[in-house]
Design a protein around this nucleic acid. Structure first.
Length: 866
RNA sequence: GCGGGCGUGAUGGAAUGGUAGACAUAUCGGACUUAAAAUCCGAAGGCCUUAGUGCCGUGUGGGUUCGAGUCCCACCGCCCGCACCA
C-alpha cells in the first residue's frame, strides 16, 4: 500500500498542468467565456491564510468552469504601489522598488505551490512602468474629457515633520513619528469628478443582482442621496444671505441658531479680520481629517456676532455660530440647528445655553426634550406644534414634502437633491505611486504631458532619510520642458492614490501587454468579470471607484458600453482568524506609581506568542520553551502584531496545499470568518489520507468482484453530484465539503462490487478536484481516468437516481413532531392523510374527536391540528 | 456620531417557513497493539430520584403562522467600515 505524499504528487501534477497549458486563457471556438477574478494582493512579502482562502475560492470556481466547458480567464497581478514600501525604505533602508519586486518574487514563489489554475502569462504589477504609463495615458484622456480637475482640499498636516500624513499615520490625533498634534491644512489637489455620476452610480445598483445586498446598501448609503430645502438667511447687517441646506425643513420653527463650518467663506473672512476668530478656527482645525474624528470631537462653537432673520418671521433673529462639527464638504457648509430633533445640535445648544424648541411630539407623549433629542423615524406619525404649513398630525416625510411645497410657493426656498458622495481626491504627496503626468509652466499654467513622452517614470535615485516626498527634493527630476511652449517648467510631484491603480486592473488583464490601456477587441470578448471575489473591506471605495472608472473608460473609448458595470457577480469572503496567545510580564511604572511607589499599580504588559510556540495540555495552555502559563483570547483577524498568524508556507510543507485548500473551505460559510485551528488542519489532512487509502483499496479489488448495495451506492453518488455541484455553484463550499465527507463515509462502508466502487471513487475525485486538485488528479490517474481530471467533463447527476421510492414523513401534532410514517413517494395526499390519522400518536391526541385541520405537504411533513 | 453586519451544543457550523444540531473538531467508550501512535467501530444538546419517542431548548421579550433558527417589532451583547491603509 502506498502512502499519501502531498509534496510528491503536488509537484508532479503542477508540472503536468503546466506542460499541458490548460490554464492559459485563449479564445477557443464554440465555448462560452468565463472571467473569474480575485482581488489582487498587495505584495507585503508573505502570503497569509486570507490570501489562501480568497484564491482557493476563486480557483474552485475557475476549475469548475473549466470542467463545464468554458474558456476561463483567471489572472493574477500585484497591487504594488503604496506606503509600506516607503515605510520599509525609511525603517530598514533600501529602495521601495527593490523591496516591492523582491516581495513579489517571494510571494509568487509562495503562491505557486498552491496549485492555482492561474494564467501566469498575464501577470503584471501596478508599479511596472508598462502599467502605470498606460494609467497616465488614461489620466490624460480623462483630463481631456473633463473628468479631472484641481481644487483645494484638506489633508492631515504634521507641523513638526512638515509633511502630509495619511489617516493611518495619525494616532489619537498625533503624527505617528513626531507625536505632534495633527492639524488640518488645505492643499491644491487633483480630483476625479465622481460626484457627477452620483445619480447613475446609485441607480445602476439595482442592476447588480448578483452582488450581496449588503454591499449595494453600503454603496447606497455612501452615495447618500437626500432631498431637502435650500434657502437663504438674510443678514441683519446687510451682508450677503447665508445659504443653508437642510433635510429637515419641517422643523424650521425649532431653529436655535445658524451654524457655519470653520472652513466656510464667512468664517475665513472673519479669521483674517479677527484674531479671536483665528484662534478659534485654528482650534477647530486640530485633529485628523476623518469623518469619525470630526463627528466625535468635542463640540466647539464661537458666536460670530452676526445675526440673521428667520425666513418665517422677520422679527425673529438668530445668531450665527461657527461650529466645528459642520463639514464644508457637505451641502453648503452652513446649517440651521434644530436642537429638539438632532442630538448633535442639542448637545451644542446645552453647552452654549441656546434655546431648545420642540416642533413636534409623539402622539401619546408631550414631554419636552431635555437631554435626548426626539428623533423618530420619518415614517412615524407625530403631532405638530403650530406648524406653519398647517399640519397637525403627519409623518416626517409628509411634513418635509409640505414644507418644501410651502417654501417654493412662497418663493423663499427651493427643493434640492444632494449627495453625500464627494469627488475623489487622487493626489498623494508621496514617491511610491504613479506620477501624475502634468507639468507646471510659468507661462502656460498646468499643462498635460504629451502622450509620446509617457511613461513619466519615477526616478530611481531618491532618498528616504527625511520625511516628505522625495520627488519634491530631487535635484533634477522635476525639471522639464513645457509640453506647450517648450520653456523650462516643473513636473507635478504628487503621485496618484493607489486606488487608481486598482480601479482598472481588471480591464488590463484582458490585454496586459497592449500598447494602449486596453485592446477593445479583447475587452469586448472577456469583459465583464463574471465572478469577482474579495474582502468586504472593499465594499465601498474600491468597488465604487472601479464602477466610476469603467464609465470613464467607456467615455474615453477604452471599454465597451457593456462594461460600465464591470463586475457581473460579486462575492465578499470572510477573514481567517486565530486565537491570540500571550504571557504577561510586569509593565513599566505608570505616572501615578512613580509618585506613590505602590507596586500593585504596575500594569502587566502582554507579550504575544506565536501559535507554534505554545502547547495545549489537559490543564491549560503553556509556553513550550519555559512552561509559563499562556492566556488565550478569542479568535481575531490574523495580525503580525498579535502574532496570531499561521504561515501558509509552513502548512503547505507540513501537510501539502490540498490540505490547506480543503481546510480553508471546509469549516465556515465562505462569507463568514473562519477560525484556523491546528486540529482542523490535521483533520483535513487525515481525511485526504483516508480518501487516498480508499483509492488504494478499491484499486486493489478484483475488477470482476461483485457485492451488495451497488444501487444504493450509486444513488448516493448521484445525490452527492447534485449537492456538490449546487454547493460549488452557489458559494456553499462548506456544505459541499460536508457532503463529500458523508459520501466518503458511505463509500468506505460500502460492500458494493468493484465496478460500482470504482465509479464512485472516480466521481469522488472529480467532485473533489476543484478543492483538492492534486489529490484528485492522482486518484483519477490511479483509477485509469482518461487525461487530466482538471479538464474531464464535470459529472452530471442522473435525475432518475435522485428520488427514493419511499419517503419518511414526520407527523406533527399542533406543530410538534410526534411520530413518523413511511410511505411511497407519490402517494396521494388524502391517502397520506388517512395513514397519518391512523397512527397511534394521532389517535391518542384526538381521543375520538375529529381533527380541526390537517396540513399535508407532500414529501415533507404532515401536521394535525387538534 | 453615522453606516453595515453577526448571535444555534464544549467548539466551527448544517437546516427552499416543515424531523434543529448534517459534517467536522474536542471529549468519552470499545477494537487492534506488549505498549503508544496511527487506523477502525460506537456514544454524546440540557433536564428528571417517573428515563418517557416525557419536558425544555437556536442571545432576551413580544408578534405573524397549522408550523419560526428562518418573517416582523423592541431590547441586549459582540464585530467591522467611515473617503490619504491596502
Amino acid at each position: 500500500m502506498s502512502r499519501y505524499s502531498a509534496t510528491e504528487i503536488e509537484a508532479k501534477w503542477q508540472e503536468a498542468w503546466h506542460k499541458a497549458g490548460i490554464f492559459t486563457a485563449n479564445h477557443k471556438a464554440g465555448k462560452p467565456k468565463y472571467y473569474v477574478l480575485e482581488m489582487f494582493p498587495y505584495p507585503s512579502g508573505r502570503i497569509h491564510m486570507g490570501h489562501v482562502r480568497n484564491y482557493t475560492m476563486g480557483d474552485v470556481i475557475a476549475r469548475h468552469k473549466l470542467a463545464t466547458g468554458h474558456n476561463v480567464l483567471h489572472p493574477m497581478g500585484w497591487d504594488a504601489f503604496g506606503m509600506p514600501a516607503e515605510n520599509a525604505a525609511m525603517a530598514i533602508g533600501g529602495h521601495p522598488k527593490d523591496w516591492t519586486y523582491g516581495n513579489i518574487a517571494d510571494m509568487r514563489g509562495q503562491m505557486k505551490p498552491l496549485g492555482l489554475s492561474i494564467d501566469w502569462s498575464r501577470e503584471f504589477a501596478t508599479c511596472d512602468p508598462e502599467y502605470y504609463g498606460q494609467q497616465q495615458a488614461l489620466f490624460l484622456d480623462m483630463l481631456e474629457a473633463g473628468l479631472v480637475y484641481r481644487k483645494n482640499a484638506v489633508v492631515n498636516w504634521d507641523p513638526v515633520d512638515m509633511t502630509v500624513l495619511a489617516n493611518e499615520q495619525v494616532e489619537n490625533g498625533r503624527g505617528w513619528r513626531s507625536g505632534a498634534l495633527v492639524e488640518r491644512r488645505e492643499l491644491t489637489q487633483w480630483f476625479f469628478k465622481i460626484s457627477d455620476y452620483s445619480e447613475e452610480l446609485l441607480d445602476a445598483l439595482d442592476t447588480l443582482e448578483n452582488w450581496p445586498a449588503k454591499v449595494r446598501l453600503m454603496q447606497e448609503n455612501w452615495i447618500g442621496k437626500s432631498r431637502g430645502l435650500q434657502f437663504g438667511f438674510e443678514r441683519t447687517d446687510g451682508g450677503a444671505p447665508i445659504t443653508v441646506y437642510t433635510t429637515r425643513p419641517d422643523t424650521l420653527l425649532g431653529a436655535s441658531f445658524v451654524g457655519i463650518s470653520p472652513d466656510h467663506p464667512i468664517a475665513k473672512q472673519l479669521e483674517a479680520e479677527n484674531p479671536e476668530v483665528a484662534e478659534f478656527v485654528a482650534e477647530c482645525r486640530k485633529g485628523g481629517t476623518t469623518e469619525e474624528a470630526i463627528e466625535t470631537a468635542e463640540k466647539l462653537g464661537y458666536d460670530t456676532g452676526i445675526r440673521v432673520k428667520h425666513p418665517l418671521d422677520p422679527n425673529w433673529e438668530l445668531p450665527v455660530w461657527i461650529a466645528n462639527f459642520i463639514l464644508m464638504d457637505y451641502g453648503t457648509g452652513a446649517i440651521f440647528a434644530c436642537p429638539a430633533h438632532d442630538q448633535r445640535d442639542l448637545d451644542f445648544c446645552r453647552k452654549y445655553g441656546l434655546p431648545v424648541v420642540d416642533t413636534f411630539f409623539a402622539l401619546d407623549d408631550d414631554t419636552p426634550v431635555d437631554k435626548i433629542a426626539f428623533v423618530p423615524p420619518k415614517t412615524e406619525k407625530v403631532r405638530w406644534v403650530n406648524h406653519f404649513a398647517g399640519l397637525t398630525e403627519a409623518t416626517g416625510d409628509e411634513a418635509i414634502d409640505a414644507t418644501v411645497d410651502f417654501a417654493e410657493k412662497a418663493g423663499w426656498g427651493e427643493g434640492v437633491t444632494k449627495y453625500r458622495l464627494r469627488d475623489w481626491g487622487l493626489s498623494r504627496q508621496r514617491y511610491w505611486g504613479c506620477p501624475i503626468p502634468v507639468v507646471h509652466c510659468d507661462a502656460c499654467g498646468v499643462v498635460p504631458e504629451k502622450k509620446e513622452n509617457l511613461p513619466v517614470r519615477l526616478p530611481d535615485d531618491v532618498t528616504f532619510d527625511k520625511p516628505g516626498n522625495p520627488l519634491d527634493r530631487h535635484p533634477t527630476w522635476r525639471d522639464c520642458a513645457c509640453p506647450n511652449c517648450g520653456a523650462p517648467a516643473k513636473r507635478e510631484t504628487d503621485t496618484m492614490d493607489t486606488f487608481v491603480d486598482s480601479s482598472w486592473y481588471f480591464a488590463r488583464f484582458t490585454a496586459p501587454r497592449a500598447e494602449t490601456p486596453t485592446d477593445l477587441a479583447e475587452a469586448e470578448y472577456w469583459m465583464n468579470v463574471d465572478q469577482y471575489i474579495g474582502g468586504i473591506e472593499h465594499a465601498i471605495l474600491h468597488l465604487l471607484y472601479s464602477r466610476f472608472f469603467a464609465r470613464a473608460m467607456n467615455i474615453t473609448g477604452h471599454l465597451p458600453k457593456k462594461a460600465i458595470e464591470p463586475f457581473d457577480a460579486l462575492f465578499t469572503q470572510g477573514m481567517v482568524t486565530h486565537e491570540i496567545y500571550y504571557t504577561t510580564r510586569p509593565g513599566r511604572m505608570s505616572e501615578v506609581e512613580k509618585i506613590s511607589e505602590i507596586d500593585s499599580l504596575k500594569e502587566p504588559v502582554r507579550v504575544y506568542q506565536y501559535p507554534e510556540d505554545v502547547e495545549r495540555r489537559d490543564d491549560g495552555v503553556f509556553l513550550k520553551s519555559t512552561g509559563e502559563p499562556v492566556k488565550v483570547i478569542p479568535s481575531a483577524k490574523m495580525s503580525k502584531s498579535k502574532k496570531n498568524v499561521v504561515d501558509p508556507v509552513n502548512i503547505i510543507s507540513a501537510f501539502g496545499a490540498d490540505t490547506a485548500r480543503w481546510f480553508v473551505l471546509s469549516d465556515s460559510p465562505p462569507e463568514r470568518d473562519v477560525e484556523w485551528t491546528a486540529s482542523g488542519a490535521e483533520a483535513a489532512y487525515k481525511h485526504l489520507n483516508r480518501v487516498w487509502n480508499l483509492c488504494d483499496k478499491i484499486g486493489a479489488m478484483d475488477p470482476n468482484a461483485t457485492g451488495e448495495g451497488d444501487e444504493a451506492l450509486l444513488r448516493e453518488m448521484h445525490k452527492t453530484i447534485r449537492d456538490v455541484t449546487l454547493g460549488v455553484e452557489s458559494f456553499g463550499f462548506n456544505a459541499a465539503i460536508a457532503k463529500l465527507y458523508a459520501f466518503t463515509n458511505t463509500l468506505a462502508k460500502s460492500k458494493a462490487g468493484a465496478a460500482a466502487q470504482k465509479q464512485a471513487i472516480k466521481t469522488l475525485a472529480q467532485l473533489m478536484s476543484p478543492m483538492t486538485p492534486h489529490l484528485a488528479e492522482d486518484i483519477w490517474a490511479h483509477q485509469g481516468g482518461e487525461g487530466l481530471v482538471a479538464v474531464a467533463p464535470w459529472p452530471v447527476a442522473d435525475e432518475t437516481m435522485l428520488v427514493d421510492d419511499t419517503v419518511t414523513l414526520p407527523i406533527q401534532i399542533n406543530g410538534k413532531r410526534r411520530a413518523e410514517i413511511s410511505v411511497a413517494k407519490d402517494l396521494a395526499k388524502d391517502e397520506v392523510e388517512k395513514i397519518a390519522l391512523s397512527t397511534e400518536a394521532v389517535q391518542k391526541a384526538l381521543d375520538g374527536a375529529a381533527p380541526k385541520k390537517v396540513i399535508v405537504v407532500p414529501g415533507r411533513i404532515v401536521n394535525v391540528v387538534v
